[in-house]
Computed example of a mutant assay.
Amino acid sequence: MDSCAEHSAHERAIEQHDRRLDAHGGEIDELRECVVRLTALQEAHSAWQADADDRIAALEAAPGKRWESAINYVLTSVIGIVIGIAAGHIGL
């Protein structure tokens, strides 16, 4: 059976579309792999960022803790002195 000119043109067009579809399918697969790798990188970065934020917060809190300790020592000393003076006046 001989095919007419229109039919052969349709077959060529379909073959061309099939080739393009196959090529695009490969590109889609490559993009999917890229998305998977990017997602893994983003998750790793998020974990690193959370760890870095915790370390920065600890470093920023250190001077505040030192001041709290110093104030506690001063307050304890002042209270001790006041109690000592009061005990001295009472005769203890």
Rank of each mutant, 00 (worst) to 15 (best):
I56T: 13
R37E: 09
E6A: 11
S69C: 11
G25K: 10
A47H: 11
V82N: 02
R32P: 12
R66D: 04
V82D: 02
A57H: 02
V82E: 00
H45S: 12
L31W: 10
R66N: 06
E60L: 15
H10I: 14
W48C: 09
Q49Y: 09
L75A: 03
I90C: 04
L31F: 12
M1E: 15
S3A: 07
S8T: 13
L31I: 14
E15N: 10
E15H: 12
A9I: 08
A52E: 08
A50L: 14
G26E: 04
H24K: 13
R20K: 13
L21T: 11
E27T: 07
Q42S: 15
H17S: 14
H24S: 13
I83K: 00
E30R: 08
L41I: 14
A40Y: 13
G88N: 01
R12M: 03
A61K: 06
Q49P: 02
G25V: 01
H17P: 13
E68N: 14
V74N: 04
A44P: 02
L31Q: 12
S3E: 14
I83H: 00
I79V: 05
R19P: 08
D51G: 04
A40P: 05
H17F: 06
E68V: 12
A44H: 08
Q42K: 14
I56H: 04
S69P: 08
A58G: 02
L92I: 10
L38N: 09
G26Q: 03
G64A: 03
A58C: 07
Q49D: 12
S69V: 15
I28Y: 08
D22L: 12
E30Y: 08
I81V: 03
H89T: 09
A40H: 13
D22I: 02
E27F: 09
V78A: 06
S3L: 10
E43G: 06
E60C: 12
V82H: 01
E11N: 11
A23K: 03
K65Y: 04
E27C: 05
S69H: 15
R32W: 06
A57K: 08
A61V: 00
I79D: 00
E6D: 13
G88M: 01
I81N: 00
A44W: 04
M1F: 12
V35T: 04
S46V: 05
R20Q: 15
T76P: 01
L41M: 09
R55T: 06
A52N: 08
D2K: 13
A87V: 00
L31D: 09
L41H: 14
A70V: 11
I85C: 02
D18S: 09
N72R: 15
D53R: 03
A86N: 00
C34P: 05
G25P: 08
G64P: 02
G80L: 03
I14F: 06
R37S: 06
I79T: 11
I56N: 10
L75Y: 00
I81L: 02
A52K: 05
D53L: 09
R66I: 04
R32N: 14
A52F: 03
H24Q: 15
M1T: 15
G25T: 04
R20Y: 11
R20F: 14
L92S: 11
I81F: 03
R55Q: 12
D18P: 07
A86W: 03
S46A: 13
A40I: 04
